[in-house]
Each structure stands twice: as C-alpha cells, then as structure tokens.
Design a protein around this nucleic acid. Structure first.
Lengths: 217, 217, 217, 217
DNA sequence: TATGAATGAGCCTTCATTCAT
DNA sequence: AATGAATGAAGGCTCATTCAT
C-alpha cells in the first residue's frame, strides 16, 4: 500500500484515514501515517478537519452513509419479499460491508470498530444508523418466528443478536480462523457461502425455537 | 479502582496489566498507567519482563491458563454427558470468561482481544489453547448434528463459528447493546439467561439444519 | 469584541492588529487571530504587508503618529504657558495615551510595548518621536528646577525619567494594582486624578530638589 | 551564553528557565530552548515539573524567595532607623533586584514580568510577597509625609506607586534609555547613583507635597 | 530487588508563510 | 485585490526504555 492517488487532498485524506483508522483504531492510528498514505502534509488534516478527532468524526458519518448505500441491508428487496429472503439479504449485505474489498472496504470495518471501542460519536451513530438496522432485523426475525413475538420483545432482540453475532464473528477473529481453517476464503464467493450458512443456521433455529426461551430484559 | 494491593511487585504488575490491557488493548495501554495501578515503579516492568511486549506475553499465557482453569469449557461435565448439556456448558463457560467479574475478570477479555488484534504471540496460543477448544466444540456440534458430519468437516466448523460468534457478540458490542437495550444485564443471572438463549438457538438450529449446507472449505 | 467592520481590508487589518499586538505583544500575537478579528483572509496580511513583521512596522509608525496627534504632549498649550501647566499637560496626555479607551486605544499601548520589547524598528521611533518628547520634558523639568540645570544635563534627564516612570507604572502593573487597590479606577476621571497626583508629586520634588543630586552620566 | 553547568538536572533547568523566562516571557520562551541551555532532555522538564507551566510556577516562587532574600527591602536596617534611610534601602534593593547581575539576575526580572503579563500564579504572589512590600513602603511613605496620612490611605498608596514607578522605569525602558543616554551605566555604581536620585526626588516630593492632593480611592 | 532520574523518538497541534487561482 | 488550500518548521507533551544507584 503506497499512496492514495485519486481526488483532491481532502478526499485523499479521508480515503487514507478510512484505511488506517479501520485497521488500527482511533488511538493507535497516527496523523502522520494517514498523511503519508494520502500524500498530504500533516497540517492539511488540521486545515480541513480541525483535528484528529474531527477527521475521525467526518469519516465515521461517511462510513455509515457510504457503507449502507453500497450494501443496503435489503439488497434491493421490497418489504413484501419473503422474510427468509430478506434475512438472507440482511446477512449477505452485513458480511459484504465487513469483508468486502474495493474502494470503500474500510466503511464496514470502521463501523464495527466504533461499536467495539466507542468514541463520543457513537451516540449519534446508534440513533441515526444502527437503531434502524436493529429494528429492521427484529421485524424480519419476528416474522420468521411466527409465534406472536413482536419486534420489540426481548425474544426478538436476543435472536437478532444471534444473527449479527454470527456475521461479525469471522471479521473479528480473522487471524485465529485463518490458522484453524486456512482454506476458508473471504472473496465474493466465500462471503456468499458464509452468508448462505449463517442464513440457513439462523432460519433453522428461528423456525424451531422452543417457545419457553427464558430471555431476560 | 485505585491500587492493586496483593502480592509482590511482579504479581501486582500482572494483575494491573491484566486489567489495563484487557480494557484498552496493547497499544493504547501505557506502562505508566499499569505501574500506577500496581503501585510500582516504571522501571519495574522492564526489570521483571524485559519490555512492554514481554509483560503482555507473560500475561497472555496466564490469561488462557487461569481463564480456562476457572471456567473450564466442560464445567465439570464428563465426555459421556449428553451433547446438549456439554454445549450448554461450553457456551456458559465461554460467556463467563468474557463477561464475568471478580479477581480474574481480565483473563477472558484478554483472550478475546488477542484474537481480534493478534500479536506474534497468537500462534502459540492457537496451538496450545484455542485449537483444543475448537476441536471440542466441533465434536459436540457434530454429535448434535447427527447426520454423519465429522468434527473436521467444514460443516462442523461453520456451525462452531456460529456458536462462538453468538457468545462473543455481546462482549464486542457492549456499548451499542447498552443503548439499544439498556435493561439487558450481565450479572451472573444475566449471563445464565444469555447462555440459555444461545444454547437453545444453536440446538434448535443444529437439530434441523438442512443437509445441503453448501459450506466451503 | 467580534469583528472590526469599518474600512477596507487593509484598514481593518491594521485596526485589528493594533488591538492584538498591543494586548499580547509581537510574538504572542498570531496572524490568524488578527485576520479573524479583521474578518480577512490569512493571506491578506502577506499581500498587503509582506509578512507579520511588515504589518507590525506599519502599525508602529501609525501608532506614534495617531497617538501623538490624538493626545499631543502639550494638549494645546503654547510654549509660553507656565511650566507647571505644561508638565501637567505632558503627564495627562501621556497617561491618556496609555490608558485611554476608544477607537485608537491601542496606539499608546503599542508605543509602550515597543519600548519594553524592542524590535529593529525601535531606532527610527526613538529618533522620530521619542527623542522630541524627551527633549520637551527635559525643557519643562529644567525650567521648573530653575537652578541652572540645562535640558541636556544628566540631572534633567534623571528627573524626566522620574516623571515618565510614574506615568507608565499603573499601565505596566495593572493586574497587581487591581489586586492591591481594587477601587482605583482608570476611566477618564480616574486618569485625571492620577495625572493630578503625578504632577503634584513631581512639582513638589522638582521645586525642592537639593542641588547636590549626585547623578551620573 | 552556552550552557548552565552547575547542579543536577533540576537545578540546571531552573537556572536556565530563569534566564529564558525572564528575558522572553512565558509564551515566547520555549521548553526546547530552556533544555538546550540547561543541557538537559526535553522530557526532563515534564518529569520534574509536569509541564511548562509547572516549571514556571516553581520558578516564580523561587524568584521571589531568592530575590527578597538576596536583596531584602530593608537591606538590614531595623524599623527604628530613620524613614529616609529605610526609603533609600527600599529603593536601592528594588533596583538591585531588577538590574543586578550575577547568579540570580533573573529573579527580579521574572518578578517584574509576572507583574506586567500576569499568569494564574500572580494571585498567590501578590498575597505572599507583593502585599507585604506594598505595606512596608506605604508605612515609610506615611511616616515621611508626616501629615496624618495613614499607610492605608489612597494618598500613601499613590505616593508608593510614584516611588515604585521610578524604580521600574529604567528596567522597563532599557533600550530606549540606552539610545537617549548611552552613557548611563547600570553597574553597581550606576545602580547606587540611580537609587540616590530616586530617593532624593521622592524625599523632596514627600516632604513638600501639598495636603490637597486630590487622590481617588 | 527495586527505584528515581534521564533519554530520544514520536505524538498532535499550531505557526507564519506561499501557492494557484 | 483577494482567497481557499497547502506547506515545512517548530511548538508542548508523552511514550517506552535505559541508566546509575
């Protein structure tokens, strides 16, 4: 990875910051490294974004905005599509955001990082982006459960966590998984296969989940 | 949290480092902060452990050793116990290691951190601790699937990932979950409830998973 | 204090620079702050004045020019007026330049600053403005002494320093004086009272100063 | 001026900081420059004093402490000595503190600087050191006035300001005075001569000051 | 065994200045 | 005549580490 070369300084800075922040986190990333990658002067960060945190905040908003536009959680399906297909779309898009390569590969990674090591910017992100995603998934889950569970019930929330947890797992444990199962690929086909498995696993679980699930909260 | 006060300097250092490293990660943690918490001199780290990384490595081994001793994945069950119960034990112990409080609360957290941001020490940890855990879980899973799947098959591996992913999820997304569902507790009872849900969800999935699962690898 | 709003860019820049430089000194003042106050672009300074020092130099000349025009050391008195009154005028105008408010409040302050932390521009200021002031005061002093002392004698010089020193004192020790004597005002009436005291003190001294004043130089 | 070479690092740092701060003021002085002069590492400042401001505060206290010990305002005279002599001692010691050379030449300069550009540390300095000096001088002045004026009266305060103002003047206007009167020396003899003049001027003033001095507050 | 002191590298930030338009 | 963008140097500060005792 040598230089980001497209766009004006501000764009190059965001692209570079996206890569670095998503890989190392806010603290461990350095402005110098970002600027080196963006082929820009250190002072440019402070001119365009005020300070390191300002750059991070701008980036975080863009990350959600771009990430959700590029891989929308419905993948084009309307709300009238079968819940099973909508679940698959949710899982597939979620995985793609996290694992996908290309120009905006950092978006999903940054979203995930912010969730694990929150900064003061998290509050707004939850309200604006994450809550709607959570609601959507709980609606799908409740529909599949088909046992009277409502999206706002703890039962639906727990199941939604089970789905999302599976999606994040490979992203969060990349190094370990590469060692345990070196042949597991994460190219487009690999992602598709993973999405298929997670969807199947979750569908199978939801369709037969015993009603006495003693969920709290 | 003011000072660690038990044991000699070396022990206090490890206890303190456990707390700090597990909360902030290797890079963001500072030797000074650890020493302040341990009520020790900055130079003590380098005397006892060579350098910051040496301290981290010593700690990591201890983390797995202590963590797995305190919450063994079988929770006392023998290999002859029903697979359903052994799955529950695996999940419950996993959650306890990550979320549990008390004297060695940092062990599980540190194990998880190392998996997400690997250091050169990871290789050894995988061989010595993680691989056996993975094998154990895949055996349980294969037994529950009961469709000819062997522990070393990709099908079992994927299902094992589905289980572990659910377990890690709440730990990795603490801040977001606290906002989405503020009433969700993680005390002992809360952990037990979560373990019940994850076990039920996974059992339900495994018992009805269609055979054509097109897993790769 | 928000923005300077009168005049074209160059004028606004000088007005703003006057306020900032006179309050903070050359080094501590920043071009950015001046431009913000002048509602002008950072580059404007370098366009109009070459660099920060160029702006300062232009300003310094203006400061003396405007300051001495606004509060001339004679306050309108002719050379035929009694020496006592001319001394009072000198003291009063000096104090007004330093402490007075209003549109050009910065002029006197800047003159005093330059005297304390000289820049290369000082030489010219001394020749053009300060020396004539010094001569004027020494003439007044010599006339009051009325013991054969000539304006160019060390005796007259020392007495002139005594007068000027009293005038500058309150300006230079504002913060301390405010604490020692919080009720001391520096509005127009306060300045007048101070001028009265300094004049009385100095007149009393000059009229009875013993002849054997062993002044050097 | 190359290096400060006596004492351990902390002492060298304070000596060097004394010189630099007293010459340039808090803002314009740089930690790097101080450390270069002290032949110490930049980090040493932060180790011994926390930060730049901590160094300055430590220094300021020392400045008053050392300065007043080296040149006590009474110069050894007891309170029973004639007021005229005590005034001379006050003036002479004040001048010596400001203009004197030698090992601790910076003490008086730093005291004066703090008075002109106050930092948050000023409050304490006023209470602890400056107020007693002010009281002492006002007692002397009131005694010389011998017209019923008490030390706490505005009349005494104004006269005290007149004395102190004369003392500070040469220090604050060094560059200008050097140009107006190049032959004026500030070696020990020069300081003594100046002290004699200021004392004579002030005594002459105080002894004949008209009673109607319309001083305010 | 343990520690107060010291160090050099690197951090984020701010500065006066210049460039291209 | 004026400006938004960009720059290299320098600012204070913190870091992990080492030294001398």
């Amino acid at each position: 990875m040598d230089h980001v070369e497209v766009g004006d300084t501000k764009e190059r800075l965001m692209e570079a910051a996206g890569r670095i922040f998503s890989e190392k986190g806010f603290k461990a990333a350095t402005v110098r490294e970002i600027c080196r990658l963006a082929n820009a002067n250190v002072a440019a960060v402070h001119y365009h974004f005020g300070d390191k945190e300002g750059l991070y905040k701008s980036l975080l908003t863009e990350a959600f905005e771009i990430g959700l536009k590029r891989y929308p959680p419905s993948l084009g399906l309307g709300p009238e599509a079968p819940a099973e297909e909508r679940l698959h779309a949710f899982v597939h898009s979620f995985l793609s955001r996290l694992m996908g390569g290309g120009r905006f590969a950092w978006c999903g990674k940054l979203m995930a990082r912010e969730s694990e090591e929150p900064t003061p910017a998290l509050d707004h992100m939850v309200e604006r982006y994450i809550l709607p995603l959570s609601v959507l998934l709980r609606q799908i889950v409740a529909e599949i459960l088909n046992d009277g569970t409502r999206p706002e019930d703890a039962r639906a929330f727990n199941c939604a966590m089970s789905v999302v947890g599976q999606c994040q797992h490979i992203f969060r444990n990349r190094a370990v998984i590469d060692k345990l199962s070196p042949s597991l690929k994460t190219d487009e086909a690999g992602i598709a296969a993973l999405a298929r498995h997670i969807t199947d696993f979750s569908l199978s679980a939801l369709k037969h989940l015993p009603r006495h699930d003693s969920a709290q909260a």
